[in-house]
Nucleic acid binder design. Sequence first.
DNA 1: ATGTCC
Length: 476
Amino acid sequence: MDLNRLRQDSEFAWRIPAEAPMTVPGILYGDREQILQMDDKVYEQLRNVTLLPGLVGPVYAMPDAHWGYGFPIGGVAAFDADAGGVVSAGGVGFDISCGVRLLHTGLQAADIEDAKSALADSLYANIPVGVGSEGSISLGPESMRDMLEGGARWAVDQGYGCAGDLERTEECGCIPGADPDAVSERARKRQRREMGTLGSGNHYLEVQRVAELFDAGIASAYGLDPDHLVISIHCGSRGLGHQIGTDYLREMLLAASDFGLTLPDRELACAPIHSELGQRYIGAMRAGMNCALANRQIITHLTRAVFREHFPQAELTMLYDVSHNICKVETHVVEGVARELHVHRKGATRAFGPGNPDLDLSLRDAGQPVLIGGSMGTGSYVLAGTADSEHRALSSACHGAGRAMSRRKARREYGGRQVVDELARRGIVVRSPSLRGIAEEAPLAYKDVDRVVDNADRAGLARKVARLEPVVCVKG
DNA sequence: ATGTCC
């Protein structure tokens, strides 16, 4: 990216000045080198977002930002419904409510050293993974509706997990306002047999070792101890979310001229929040969020069953579950005024600071756990939302390492077998149905997650708490 | 991300 087009606000914040016809500036977070290496497409896409109506405050790009569909991945944008604000299917992304759930195991790294391979085999055998993977659960029309309305709460009612899980899940596991009738028949059909499945791409289930702590106080509040094992589950709303995205992108594009919207990019198709279409999309998107929450809840249940076989003493309890592809209605103080905003976070993690009433009391003093998935074979991180993150980026932080090269290029550069062997030499056991997928997800196809997280911390988006290293990885 | 093109 050409730094000459940016104004440097601080060591870690770069501004696209709000020149007409832009109504708000764009802010990119990261160090000089990161911004320099960012694709020009991120600049172009972030600038395009600033041209949408009803924006409040700057639009933001997180340090892991890269080229996405319409909005950059790692993008944050907030709209005021009463000021003509819009909701955008491309601003949420195709994988609605993709997110990360982190579980404690109570085990130490040494406890599983001799059983890593067997554990990997069991996890791989019991948790469906890969493109089009199906589980043993099949939802009829009534159950589908209940799931779309109930989310993880529905899953717990069905026997997948316990009430304690919900206290540690965003929205207590169920976002209100979901509208199953706004979800197409095709979207539901695609999801019928996909509950409790990981999917493909960058989705995974990892057993990880707590490798380093950066804030002992918050780590203690989160129950993170050195050398303890945790489990990260990264997945979303599978075929249902994807179909909702596809359906509404098409509909929003066709309706754009009726709304008098001139789109800077077809991929930024959107609808006024107050329009019938906007409201219908929000209802469908919330159903997609409940689907993702239920999905991660069922996978939690499957994971517990596997661990019970191998380690009867293990107790899998929740640290937290948070989405990084979603539009949420939140109150934020902008220029001294509290406003209700529709905050789009696409590849950006909500990072509520201490005292936020949405947090369970057990987490409220420490702030919200911000769960960052690294690339395969590299570190993952737990951060904490801070009071500062509110005015830095509407309480948002990065979501992962962020891709550094396209999937196609990664396939040309790396062999799947070679990547698996290399990770095995480092003691990381990988199971996946797709060597091609492994090549696309090669660690070097991603940005340096350590640097991304360092800069998220230094930019004041969230505070570093712990670094996690992979031990076992089940990969889509 | 995705029954990797209805």
